[in-house]
Design a binder for these strands. Sequence first.
DNA 1: GATTGGAATGTTATCGATAACTCCAAAATA
DNA 2: TATTTTGGAGTTATCGATAACATTCCAATC
Lengths: 335, 335
Amino acid sequence: MVTIYDIAKKANVSAMTVSRVINNTGRISEKTRMKVKRIMEEMNYVPNSMARSLVLQETKILSLLITDITNPFYTTLARGAEDAAKRCGYKLLFGNSDENLIKEKEYVDMMLTARVDGVLFAPAGDGSLEHLNTLRKHNIPLVLLDREVPGFETDMVLGDSKDGARKLVEHLISLGHKRIALINGALQVSTARHRLAGYKEALKLNDLPYDDRLVAEFGYKPFADDSSLDELLQLDDPPTAIFAANNFLAIGVIRALRARGIPVPEQISVVCFDDLGESSVIDPFLTVAAQPAYQFGALGIQLLIERIQDKSGEDYRKIILPPELIVRSSSRERS
Amino acid sequence: MVTIYDIAKKANVSAMTVSRVINNTGRISEKTRMKVKRIMEEMNYVPNSMARSLVLQETKILSLLITDITNPFYTTLARGAEDAAKRCGYKLLFGNSDENLIKEKEYVDMMLTARVDGVLFAPAGDGSLEHLNTLRKHNIPLVLLDREVPGFETDMVLGDSKDGARKLVEHLISLGHKRIALINGALQVSTARHRLAGYKEALKLNDLPYDDRLVAEFGYKPFADDSSLDELLQLDDPPTAIFAANNFLAIGVIRALRARGIPVPEQISVVCFDDLGESSVIDPFLTVAAQPAYQFGALGIQLLIERIQDKSGEDYRKIILPPELIVRSSSRERS
DNA sequence: GATTGGAATGTTATCGATAACTCCAAAATA
DNA sequence: TATTTTGGAGTTATCGATAACATTCCAATC
């Protein structure tokens, strides 16, 4: 590999002069600047970011940890983060925890050894607290995405899960549904708790009773075991509508209902949080509370970079992005 | 930040001894090993990968460049690559070229300065040749994914675009369609050429004429301008079926047909290459030639790591993964 | 002609880790 | 007892870049 010393030798100057040309610092005569530049071209010089990071104590790398790279919500978020990071001259190191605290820990270790300048973190759950504290202990600027973690204060970009859930459930109620089930994510994830809260609130505001037999807890992933759905469906007074707490849960629900020969929305309406990405336009089907995923990423990066560049430490900022109710054909009047 | 010197001082040993403990090399008495380990724990030591890479001349980072992070084909591929890389102790640096040669070049520069140990590369098109040559010039092991680039030899993991296209078109022909349009990706991408070839072959094998008015060229992205679709539809003898060269083109096609009030599949059947990911199961709609995306990533990493670890240089290997025809409801008998 | 000042460039130390070599003392061997 | 071996360390140089300080050189000023 060609180094600045190789360039320096060939140009008959010192390495420092080459460094100055590269970084446009200090004073260099136009003549030597041109000569050095020409030789760098000729020799295909590429700076070594390791060496540079070692002295500068910064890597210009940010890390983005998401919990599911196959979920359109997170890939769209990633696009937003990527665009914003690149605009500011940062590289982005992606990680995918798969909603799994062990994988998450591995990524945290990797961020530490890679000495990233900052981290955008969508925590797998409340158990992420330990990992966040590790990052904080090492003074790594940190922005939480999508989910908060009790006991940890920092900058955050969140959605309004409670409000979105309330809107979805009220939409169902306005269609005449009274028995509405909630297929929720794991309660150790803040959004699942907030969506439950929004669900309860909607019921209360409309004088409907809360029945915990109508609430099931899964993970935020396409589920395989749908047996607990059967308990729901076999109730004396089964639900006429289901609120799935995210897009992949909705997919699981619909798949399971189809398998049991239950037509959607004719017999049961289904609504959910988060849209399905591009593919949702080919069959505009699911009624959803869509979140501005791209903004999550872009704003997250913005907060992060501001924090990196000005460590002075104003108060932590919490940005809350409202979801948008999009009514499609998966929900209809109770028959 | 805590360094091995801090550890060394506190443990009353030399830095070298600490390094030996970390890497399990050389001979260390059990007593000092335990002492050093304890102190590393106490001080929250984390190795600095920059410093290590600088001397070892390897980063244990592989780079994966894809062309569209929002496309389920590529995110699934990324999962496969990620899993395989992690299993082998490598980190994965993602890049997203957006089918754009300029962005691609930026990522190539980034890979060079980051001194990644190898690159998994889905080229944006034939114009990627220059970038590939740059990487090769710097001796970076390289595996091409999904698309080949004329004039560049290396290890590759490809799909069988021609065969898949032929199967899709023959499926349409078997349903009685005779006027079949092809909405293709840009011809500067190898898969688009192969899909065109498969399309032509299917026609020929079935004694149908090739009519270039039935063929339109887009990019492999959800398109905005669908005016050229109008030319197609306004032909005297318009198509009764459309073969879209990838999933996002199919989405564009269906969206455009809907906007014009043309029912799918009643009036026009639509089939495409690549599946839509998880969301395709909620409304099993599009007839597709599905590719084993996860394998693309996993095998790609495998080839890459083999190449890194044994530079001796056997012949380049080309793995070709066959697509699977999945018939759903977007295609039906010609009415 | 001596002095000063700034533009242009060079020297040295440093970032954090590891390779290669050296050293020393205790144990094994002659 | 003298000599070799070897286990368990330490020293020094190095990776490629940059910061901080040092130096040269020439033109402007007295």
